[in-house]
Design a protein around this nucleic acid. Structure first.
Lengths: 162, 162
DNA sequence: GTCTATACACCGATAGAC
DNA sequence: GTCTATCGGTGTATAGAC
């Protein structure tokens, strides 16, 4: 709390004018992040058909997560420092987001556009793969964001059997 | 330290007979884990050719990480609590392990068995995908470990274009 | 609204008795 | 080799002056 206060030019005590306690502050940061994520995906251009929507999801997820790397890192690392009910609220939002991808994969499998041994596992595998970009991507490295998106697009298309 | 001491039936002070300080204890746990991981992979049966070796890696990684979920979780979550030189030592072991998969993918790409847009990114993507299993797998859930391995095998084969 | 001062709990680590 | 006692530091949160 002292560090946060210092970063915004206050003393620690003054923070308690804005939050009842530290966990609530953490929860609010995480909830705002998840709400932003879901709202941004709702607004994203998606095209028609499962393949176009899968491609939209891949590009959206990589771009959004790289754009907000700090919030993504915080949301993952501090998740276990929430009490049970705050934890459950964030988990519900995360599952809601996962369901967006799962719906695309289900539609693609139903139309035989995708070939998947297990839709649920494919959802988790693809999200893990995409989120992993955040652990190694650095601005100014070997590949541009655009190039990373293209490479992952191709790998994800392969993964779903296209 | 008090919790650890209590878990092994000691008082906190007595732990310092076994470790000079808390960070060294953490580092030793993580180093032992990484050494075990690399040694176990060296001993694992691998078969011949890139595809057989890729399959061996997928099965090995899922099985080993599920078997030692606590150590995997600790090694990931506490990594940033190491000093720079201990951090670098663990990172080096992690990179060494990654290189094992990368070598398989490179060989497969060179022999045109695999079709990959970027070998390095494929390495990171596959490891992220496989490690992700630890975040959701629970004993007694919908799928057995064997079934999870088979499903991921099929997805990874797709990912590398087989 | 913000600051200073501080209460109270906990943490890592050490000293010294046994 | 282990325990008890304790030191110095830090953490969240609150009280009260301004």
């Amino acid at each position: 709390m002292r560090q946060i206060a210092s970063a915004v030019g206050l003393q620690a005590g003054a923070l308690y004018l804005y939050t009842p306690d530290k966990e609530t502050l953490l929860f609010d940061l995480m909830k705002t992040h998840m709400d932003d994520l879901i709202a941004a995906w709702q607004r994203a251009p998606k095209g028609q058909g499962p393949l176009a929507q899968l491609e939209a999801f891949v590009r959206f997820h990589i771009a959004f997560n790289l754009e907000r790397a700090d919030a993504v890192f915080l949301s993952y690392m501090e998740l276990r420092n929430l009490g049970p009910e705050n934890f459950a609220a964030i988990e519900a939002l995360r599952k809601h987001y996962e369901t967006e991808l799962e719906a695309i994969l289900k539609a693609g499998a139903a139309q035989a556009v995708f070939k998947l041994p297990d839709t649920k596992l494919a959802t988790l595998a693809i999200i893990a793969m995409l989120t992993g970009v955040n652990t190694w991507y650095r601005e100014g490295g070997r590949l541009s964001r655009e190039r990373v998106e293209v490479v992952y697009l191709e790998m994800v298309r392969n993964t779903v059997g296209v």
